[in-house]
Structure formats: structure tokens, C-alpha cells
Design a protein around this nucleic acid. Structure first.
Lengths: 206, 206
DNA sequence: AGCGAACCCTATCACTTGATAAAATTATAA
DNA sequence: TTATAATTTTATCAAGTGATAGGGTTCGCT
């Protein structure tokens, strides 16, 4: 009755269950604060079982990061394609999506990547990160500059990539968890985009 | 020859040495990743000696936070008093100072405060934080609004406090350590202030 | 000199950590 | 059914954790 397909599904099931549980725990509490036993408990399995599906704790964390970043990459490229024309609306949609779907504390994530992973794994994650966050966001600002809707980079010293980082700084700051308050996230996103584009000053000085 | 003053100095010496070593370690690696043995080693003392000067690990961390935040508070109020007239210059000086003197990863610090401290200690730290960062920065924006150099808060939805958070988001983002590259910090500070005040847009839209 | 407090040490505790070995269980295929 | 492979279990390890007990040592004071 149960063919090879079902077996694979079973294996995949626990595999996915581990990644999902580990995802939440790692992003909530940080790499160091999450024990393998706690991950196992959250999956309803015993701790050594983890080591049948993953070689070690870091491998679990890497898989968590990979899925997180791949999902974000796909979602952002979809949004950007859809709101291609209007830069302000496009920035808003992207900002809003990230606010809703990002890990609650990206600062924690960055720290874990930098302090808990060796150089090689860091390089891999950096590649994933650039594909999922930096490049999509930078592409928006690049188009804005090309269409002369944004200042010349030389004028203010902010190329598309550093503009992307500026917006990401606003988005990823504070350990905010907007997942349950969509309207609040909308307000925040609007504010961030307004400030990034027009600033707080009364007149367009300088 | 050695009076009571010298004795106190001796005690104060190791006390200060502990706080200083713990400061660097906690801010670099995070609360969880720093063991009491490593702090002791960095001080050239044994681990149980720590417990003669502090009741437990958290007490050390609290003292580290307190000194960090008190120092920042004093420095910022001094700068703000000095550059009171020119809001852009004042923001720049404050931004530059924080970039140079802040902990390398403030996201890490926030996380530790939120996840490793109980409610009561969190409240204490929050008070210190508001006095050292939020209130000084917000006072600058408040003056700017009063002098009609900044937009009306109602217009963009950014009161002095949230304006302060916006700038702090830019400043504290990324695990940057500018301590050795002052010129780079100057560039960053200029950029942050320009963007916060005037934005990236070509014309002052909206 | 000698008392008492402050200080720092050695030795040790109970506990948690990531990881492994090997047995037990389950599912697949012949 | 039976052999084989995949999966999960129990039992256990060495290392590291925060913290404590108790014994020296040093210092100021009388």
C-alpha cells in the first residue's frame, strides 16, 4: 500500500518538521540559546533523531537560513515585477512584505551568521542574502536613478546598493514582530518609504 | 603606607577590570556566548573571584550596560548643548559620535536585554536606554519641529521620538565597527543625516 | 602582635550542551 | 515470509556551564 513515494513523504515530513520548528526557535531565541533537545521536543521526536537527518546543529541552521532566504527572494522578485512602474508604491509593497515576513530580529540573525558560522558557511549565506534582499532592493533604486526620479548617486553619495541598505536598516531595526498587526506594519512601511524618499526636512534643502 | 584609599583602589581596580573585560566580550560575542571563565581569564583572575565582586553573571552584564549607557548619555548631552543652534550639524555630530562609540552590534545587545533579562531588569535597562539615547535624540528633533525646520509631525506621521528611532535604526544597523576608520564613520554619518533630513528623491515630492 | 574584614584561590557541585554507539523498530522489496 | 535498508529509540559520553564551600593570604586597624 505504501510505495516509495510515501516513504519519501515520511522522511520529508520529519525533515520539514525539523526545519520549521528550528526556524521559529532560531529566529526567536538565537543560535546559541536553542538546544538540539529543544528542537527535537518541538518536533515530537528524540534528540538523536535530528542527527539522522542532519549532520550537526549548524547544518540545521544553514537549512533554516536557506529556506528563509529563498522564500524571500521569490516573493520580492514577484512583487517587484508586479509594481514595476511606480517606484514609491513598489518600495512600499516590498517594505510591507518584508516587515510582515521577516524574522523578528534580523540583528540576531546577522550576529549568529557572523559569530557562529565559519568563513566558508558565511560566504554561502552571504550569497543567499545578496540574492534575496540586496539585489532585489537595489534594482528598485537603480531603476529610480535611471528614470531620474532619485538624486544622482554622486550628489548624496548613495548608490543603489547603499540605498538598499539604508531602507533595510529601517526595516530590520528593532525586534519588531508585526505578524499579527498588519495595519501597524502598513503605517510603518509608509513612514519608512516617505522618509527614505523625501526626508523629514521642511524644504528640500541642500 | 597604604591607607584605606589604596585598599579601595585595589578593589576598584579588579572591579573595573572585570567590567571592562566583560564589556568587550559581551558586546562582541553576546551574553550567552561569553562564559564567566572567559571573563575571568581576560582579567587574569580565577572564575570564582568574579562572584566576590558580583552576585552572578547577570549582575556583571547589568553593570556593563549601566556604564555603557551612562557614558553615552553624558557624551550626547554635552554634544547637543554645544551644537544647539544648527540642527543638521548637531545631528551629524551626534550621529558621528554614536557610530564611533557604540557597541559593534546593537542588535545583539537589544536581543540579550530582551531574552536574557527578567522583566524587572529589563525595565531598569529601558530607563537607562531612554535617558541615554532616545531622549537626547528626540530633543534635537523636537527643537527642529518647534523652529519649523522639520515637517509637522502630523504631515508624515513621525513625532520626535519616532524620528529619533529612525535615525537610530540607520546608526545601529549592521554590525559595523568604525572604531578604527574615523573617516569612513564621518561619511556614513553625513549620509545618514542627509537622508533623514532630505531623502533620496529628486524633487521634494508629496 | 593580633584581630577581623576583604580578597582570591583550589576543589567541586549539579546541570546542560552537542554528539555518538548500538539496539530496536518500521517500512520496502524479493 | 524473509532479508535489507531506513528510521527512531535508549543509553551514554566528554566537555563546558553557572554557582558554591571552604581554606589561605593580605591588608588596615587597634
Amino acid at each position: 500500500m505504501k510505495g516509495i513515494l510515501f516513504m519519501l513523504l515520511n522522511a520529508n515530513d520529519t525533515h520539514k518538521k525539523i526545519v520549521k520548528a528550528a526556524h521559529k526557535l532560531f529566529m526567536d531565541l538565537g543560535y546559541r540559546a536553542v538546544s538540539t533537545r529543544r528542537i527535537a521536543e518541538a518536533c515530537g521526536i528524540t534528540q538523536p533523531t535530528l542527527y539522522h537527518h542532519f549532520s550537526n546543529k549548524k547544518a540545521i541552521y544553514m537549512e533554516v537560513l536557506r529556506t528563509e532566504l529563498v522564500d524571500m527572494k521569490n516573493a520580492l522578485s514577484r512583487i517587484i515585477k508586479r509594481f514595476d512602474g511606480d517606484i514609491e508604491e513598489c518600495l512600499f509593497q516590498v517594505t510591507y512584505y518584508i516587515l510582515i515576513n521577516k524574522p523578528p530580529s534580523m540583528g540576531q540573525m546577522f550576529h549568529d551568521i557572523q559569530k557562529e558560522l565559519d568563513q566558508e558557511h558565511q560566504g554561502t549565506v552571504r550569497k543567499w542574502w545578496m540574492e534575496s534582499y540586496q539585489e532585489p532592493l537595489a534594482s528598485i533604486f537603480e531603476k529610480g536613478i535611471k528614470d531620474h526620479k532619485l538624486r544622482d548617486p554622486a550628489e548624496i553619495g548613495s548608490d543603489p546598493v547603499s540605498s538598499a541598505y539604508l531602507l533595510l536598516s529601517l526595516i530590520s531595526s528593532r525586534n519588531t514582530d508585526y505578524k499579527l498587526k498588519e495595519s501597524l506594519a502598513k503605517e510603518q512601511a509608509r513612514l519608512y518609504v516617505k522618509v527614505i524618499l523625501y526626508g523629514l526636512s521642511q524644504s528640500n534643502g541642500q
